[in-house]
Simulated scan of single mutants.
Amino acid sequence: MTKPAFLITIDTEGDNLWQNHQSISTENTRYLPRFQALCEKYGFKPVYLTNYEMAVDAEYVEFARDVIARGTGEVGMHLHAWNSPPLQALTDDDWRHKPYLIEYPRDLVRAKVDHMTKLLEDAFQTKMLSHRAGRWAFNEYYAELLLEYGYQVDCSVTPNVNWAFSPGDPQGQGGTDYRHFPAQAYFIDPSNIARAGHSSLLEVPMSIQLKHSAMMNAFKQGYDALRGKKRSPSALWLRPSGGNLENMKKVALRCLEQGHDYVEFMLHSSEFMPGGSPTFKTEQDIEQLYRDLDGLFSWLSERTQGLTLAEYYQRKVK
């Protein structure tokens, strides 16, 4: 019997983008080899979903080319619209507001996807097959472009999560509402990305489980609404947050019990660096992160098989 896949996705981007920047550093590149070595210890193959500032970082390019050459991981595309060429201001301060790509004019969306795809393929000398949208914002036009440029896999969908309350352009409608999207992998209907269709683009949603029952979530959201607050239902992700090993196991186990043929993990590359994120600020935080990662990977190594997104795609089309 084929084991479920373990898919490790790393949003590979500049240092601590949660802060407001006027320029972006990429020191976190130096912290990736340790994580890569941990993945290889368990036979897992991370997918480095790479954005602009990392794609032009020579040290990162050298690291990722080696991963590709040894067949121990994959590079895909990740696009932060506000600093990915060609640049054209959408708001009074795009670096502060971080607009979603789907908020830009269509011709500029196309130009940014074109530029990033060609930049990555030139830097890493391999076809880009996998993609995750910056800030998880995805729509039908974006899917159409991924199909046009030959991508096979998208992993932007976050089931049960509504990003409409997370603004990009202050004059916009916020991010994508994924509350009614499938939680398992499906080939996208390009006319409605929330449902399965017959395209060649495979959607691989993040492994996310609701923290509370539907009844409790309805109560909590009603209570928040009375207080004038709007937020997405509370959810648990297969994502480290510091000392949350048991919750990550719980998410993975629920997904497998529900019949999912994969579990999908995510983290940002900058979270491997002390001070590279709001969550892991100190060296002690990083050591806790690695204790959690080692515990999770050891547990999953008995239940899953490590695949890249492109390898998982091949499993689905056979």
Rank of each mutant, 00 (worst) to 15 (best):
K230P: 05
R231K: 15
S232T: 15
P233H: 03
S234T: 14
S234A: 15
A235P: 03
A235W: 05
A235L: 02
A235T: 05
L236F: 03
W237E: 12
R239I: 01
S241T: 14
S241C: 11
G242Q: 08
G242I: 05
G242A: 04
G243Y: 07
G243N: 00
G243R: 10
N244Y: 11
N244R: 11
N244H: 12
L245D: 08
N247E: 14
M248W: 01
M248D: 06
K249Q: 12
K250D: 13
K250F: 07
V251Q: 09
A252D: 03
L253T: 14
R254P: 01
R254A: 06
C255A: 14
L256I: 01
E257I: 00
E257S: 11
E257M: 13
E257A: 12
Q258F: 08
Q258V: 02
Q258A: 15
Q258I: 09
Q258W: 11
G259D: 02
H260K: 03
D261T: 15
Y262L: 08
Y262Q: 00
V263T: 04
V263Y: 07
V263G: 08
E264L: 15
F265I: 05
F265D: 03
F265A: 09
M266W: 11
M266V: 14
M266D: 02
M266Q: 07
L267W: 01
L267F: 02
L267K: 12
H268P: 11
H268T: 05
H268M: 04
S269I: 07
S269K: 09
S269H: 01
S270D: 07
S270C: 11
S270Q: 06
S270F: 06
E271Q: 12
E271R: 07
F272M: 02
M273L: 13
M273G: 08
P274H: 04
G276K: 11
G276I: 10
S277F: 02
S277Q: 04
S277M: 00
P278M: 06
P278L: 08
